[in-house]
Every structure is written in C-alpha cells, then in structure tokens.
Design a binder for these strands. Structure first.
Lengths: 221, 221
DNA sequence: GGCGCCATCTTGGTATCCCAAACTGGTATC
DNA sequence: GATACCAGTTTGGGATACCAAGATGGCGCC
C-alpha cells in the first residue's frame, strides 16, 4: 500500500479510536515522524481528513476536530433525510433479499462480543442498509455522517439497555423493509435516529465536564 | 490570496466553465505551468476537486471527470432527498421572510440577462434555499450536488420555454414556503427536481453524439 | 514583581529534486 | 507487415530545503 493511503488510514483510525483526543494539535511534523512518512503524504492525508470533518484548521495549524454537540444534532437531521430516502428506495426494489445479510450482521453480536465490535456493527448496519438502495450518493452521505458521529458514539456511556433497544429497533426496521412497507420502515427509522440523537446528545451534555477533564474538547450545542 | 486557494478556485472555474472538457487529461505539470504555481498547491487543489467529483484518477494520472448520465440520475435522487428535507425545515421556521431575498434573486433575471447569469441564478436558487434551513450539512449537500450538475446543465440546450417554466416552478415553491405549507412546497420541489432531471438526461442523451464530437466524454446511463 | 519586548523556535506554505512506474515511439526481427 | 522489445520520455509519489508568519519563552526595564 502506498504511504499516502497508509498515513490517511492509520491517522483516521487513531482519531476515530480517540487515541488522539478531540481538540488536540496535530503538527504535520509530528505525523511525519510518527508514521515515518514525509510531508507530502501527510498533507494529502490531512486534506482528505479535513473533508471528512475529522481534522480542521486552527489558525495556521491543524487540530483534531472537537466534538460539537450542535453539529451532532445537525448531522442527525441530515442522516435522517438521506437514510430514509435510501430505505424507501430499497423498499421499492423487487429483490430485497439482501436485507437478510444485514440481519445476519446484527445476529453476529452476542453477550460476549467486545464493545468495540458492537460499536462497529451498529454503524455498519446503517451504512450497509444505505448501500442496498443502489444510490452511490445516498450511500456516501450515510457513511460520511456515521463517520462524523463515530467518536461521539464511542464516547457515549452506553448501557446494555440502550444497545438492546437499538438492536430491537434495527430488527424492526429490517422486518418492515423485507415486507416492502416503505412508510412503516421510514417511520421506524426516523424514530430510531431521533431517539438515538436525543440519548447521545443528552449523554454527552451530562458527561461534558468529565470528557473535558480527560482532555477532550467538547463544544456545547 | 494564497496560491493554494487560487489554483483550486481557478481550476474549478475552468472545469465548470468547460474550458477544460470532460474527460481531458490533467497532468500536474501542466496545471503547474498554467497557473505559475508549484506542484504542492496543485496537488492540494486536485485532492479537493477530487472529493467534489470534478476530477478523478485515470490509472496513474488525473482527468477531468466525464459527464456521467447514470450519475446525474443518482444525484437527482440525492438532491431531492436533501432539498426537500431542507425546505421542510425552512417551512417550520417562525421567520420565513428570508424567502423574499431569494425571490428577489429570481427577479433580477430578465430577457436581456446573459445566459450565463440565468445558469448561475438557477443553481443559486436551490443552494440559497437550502441555506435558509440553517442546517449546514443539508446546505453543503445541496451545494455539492449542484456543483456536480453544473457542467451538465451548462451543456444542456436550454430553450426559453424550459427556463421560464423553471422560474415559474421556483416562484411557486417560494410561495408555498412563504405560507409555511411544507407538504405543498415539498410536493412542488420534488416535481421540479424530477422534471428537471428528466429534461436534462433526455437532452444530453440526444446530444451525446454531438458532445462527443466536441471532445467531451459523456458516459451513458 | 509584573509587564513588555526581542531572540528563537515552531510550523505550515512553497519550490525543487529524485525516483519508480508507465507510456511512447522506433527499430529490429521473424 | 506485424510484433516484440528496448530506450527515452512523461508522470505522479515521495522527500527535502527554504521561507515567512506566528507562537514561545526568557530577559530586561519599569
């Protein structure tokens, strides 16, 4: 793999995995030495990550984007629009058997699956569901929105109850989609997204002080 | 202005203005000499334009993205989702007086306004309307979608009738939005987008041979 | 002791240089 | 005449040197 892709991928993982905290300074020279690459691939990676909203400019330099509660609320509205549109397209397809693949994804998580895996599958559910629509732009929009939400969801203190609730809702959405009931599927998905957003923002707003103490920049709604 | 922004802006204008045709090769060294910048800002510009879908990789090198009819159809579905969502948000706002500013934009075009200006205002109508929603992500999505459609709309052989029809539809959408009638506004906007897409794709498919003769790469749906 | 100023370091922006891979054109061979 | 092969050129990826602007910190003056 080329250095360019390598730096970009590794840096993204470090940011999404909170190995580099939201708000931290990110000098090009530090990245350069950290990954053993020169500044050319480093800059390419930063430019790409900037469009994903994971890093941003702070005056002259680069910083990891802080968690922004106002942004999270806006992303939720955005993803509701695109996910519902994608789901309606999928419900209109003649062959909706692919939803079974997604169902299987959900079932692959059980009580001794690591937390990290639940987190990943919870996002992939939405991404793969959008992919079924066959619309590349709706798919990318959902994927990008989930990327922006990823760190916040990771920070959220998720109890078992919230996870099992989410899984139940995911299954209900798939059931409606399998029947081709677009209105019901859309209703369930909207409710799921709005509910998730509320729990996420509430949780983060409550933990804000603690998160800041851990060195994570969190800006209010 | 820094070289970086400069190269990016100028190159984007040349591509959108069809000064560089869809499908043309775009060597970094050519851009470098054309704009008197070095390769670093050129690379930055190309990376950004790549995320906008205006340039792409062709093996190892760069090319201006061809006009892709299948892509245009998918973009139309995408923009319908995000524009309708944005419009519904706007209809729910207490203060919708900002629609008057957009109305004024439409009125600024009359029979001796240059074609180029009609084209720009026709796009800005949708972009500014989305901005009113206050949702940054819906706004960006609409702006990016319009950017992708821009060259195709420019290529389209637009008769006066199509333009006046579009303006009538634009005014009707604004009227419904001013009243806060979200359902009606959404219905009108959807119809407008679907109609525009059909006319656009039909027109391009018919002209495809002629466009290719002009050196423009156009891939079928 | 506090405040301001200057030297220094840091850092991103830019310009070049080098390299390996891919493309090109021409030539020699069959 | 077609084809395979080889040298030269083009091209993007990577590395590095240099610069100007901004951040930093220490020293001196008030």
């Amino acid at each position: 793999m080329s250095q360019m892709q390598n730096v970009e991928t590794q840096l993204r993982q470090m940011i999404l995995g909170l190995e580099i905290g939201p708000g931290e300074k990110l000098p090009e020279r530090w990245i350069e030495s950290r990954f053993g690459a020169s500044r050319t691939p480093v800059r390419a990676a930063l430019l790409r990550l900037e469009t994903e909203g994971l890093v941003g400019r702070d005056g002259r330099g680069w910083t990891v984007s802080p968690i922004n509660l106002a942004e999270l609320e806006q992303v939720a509205v955005y993803r509701e629009a695109v996910e519902v549109a994608a789901l309606r397209l999928t419900c209109g397809l003649a062959d909706r058997s692919a939803v079974d693949v997604i169902e299987a994804m959900l079932e692959s998580c059980d009580h001794d699956t690591p937390r990290e895996e639940w987190h990943r599958v919870g996002m992939d559910f939405h991404i793969e569901l959008a992919r079924l629509s066959g619309n590349e732009f709706l798919f990318r929009a959902v994927r990008d929105a989930m990327t922006r939400l990823s760190r916040a969801r990771w920070l959220e203190v998720r109890d078992e109850a919230a996870l099992s609730r989410a899984w139940t809702e995911h299954r209900a959405i798939l059931a409606a989609a399998r029947l081709g009931d677009a209105d019901e599927a859309a209703r369930l998905l909207s409710g799921h997204i709005v509910g998730s957003r509320d729990r996420l923002v509430t949780s983060l707003a409550n933990d804000r002080r603690g998160l800041r103490a851990r060195g994570f920049a969190v800006v209010a709604a």
